[in-house]
């Protein structure tokens, strides 16, 4: 579904991604694992073309994304949830969702605010609250819900569990499993494999802008040496 091949990216002169290749199949959850600064966020931004890549290719459902503007990438079905969440602080929950709303996609039940409130009940209880006055966990839910309003075919989720309390992380994992069960493909990024282990099928280990290893999530979890080398202990 998503095929990233030899992706290169720079911030100004700084060369950050050195040929990242990865695939996400339909209905699958893949996870990018790596320490802080490994290039996970940069990979996601480059896929969304928020940071236009300087080399390599990204194909989504067979279509080359080269030359597309970020909004066009979003429209063809890539939903992006940034690490910083980037909730619009002055807009209410409802309004934040409205910004994300896009027309339904054929063959896919469209997301509505009501369906999302069912998925994230805490959001339903604060429809009129400005995004700036929500807790980190609520903001994360809202960020995901807002992106889902665009009826994406694949979700790019950048470190969703970062900074959240364990209870909230559990609720988040539950919601993501629900999305997975509905057939949504997800590319997740995490520093800490614990959260990802419950959701992801496969893992890519990223270090200094390169994929060092990839394999089934369970295999990565089983290999303590691998985790010690590429992830924080």
């Amino acid at each position: 579904m998503l095929a990233v091949d030899g992706l290169q990216a720079h911030y100004g002169r700084a060369h950050i991604l050195h040929g990242v290749s990865l695939d996400v199949a339909a209905g699958e959850v893949a996870c990018l694992l790596g320490r802080n600064g490994a290039g996970k966020s940069t990979t996601m931004k480059a896929i969304m073309r928020l940071l236009p890549p300087t080399g390599g290719s990204v194909r989504f459902e067979g279509r080359d994304l080269d030359g597309l503007a970020p909004h066009a990438v979003a429209r063809i079905g890539l939903g992006y949830v940034p690490e910083e969440r980037r909730i619009f602080p002055d807009l209410t929950v409802e309004e934040n969702l409205e910004v994300g709303r896009r027309p339904p996609r054929p063959g896919q039940a469209p997301w509505t605010a009501e369906r999302l409130y069912a998925l994230f009940p805490s959001l339903g209880a604060m429809k009129k609250r400005p995004g700036g006055r929500m807790s980190g966990g609520e903001q994360q839910m809202l960020a995901i819900a807002r992106t889902l309003m665009g009826n994406p075919r694949l979700l790019l989720l950048d470190e969703p569990s970062e900074g959240l309390a364990p209870v909230v992380v559990d609720r988040l994992a539950e919601a993501l499993l629900g999305l997975k069960a509905e057939g949504l493909a997800i590319l997740l990024s995490e520093q800490n494999p614990g959260f990802a282990a419950s959701i992801a099928d496969r893992a890519y280990l990223l270090e200094t802008g390169q994929i060092r290893h990839h394999g089934p999530m369970a295999a990565v979890m089983a290999d303590a040496g691998l985790r010690a080398r590429y992830l924080s202990v």
């Binding site: 970020p70 909004h71 992006y80 940034p82 980037r86 619009f88 807009l91 309004e95 409205e98 896009r102």
Partner: peptide, 24 residues
Amino acid sequence: SRFGILLRAATHDREMVAALGVDQ
């Protein structure tokens, strides 16, 4: 209005609005 909500969103974070599929 949707237009107005998008304007307010863009006032805060144009890039995020684009990433959500809005043609700026």
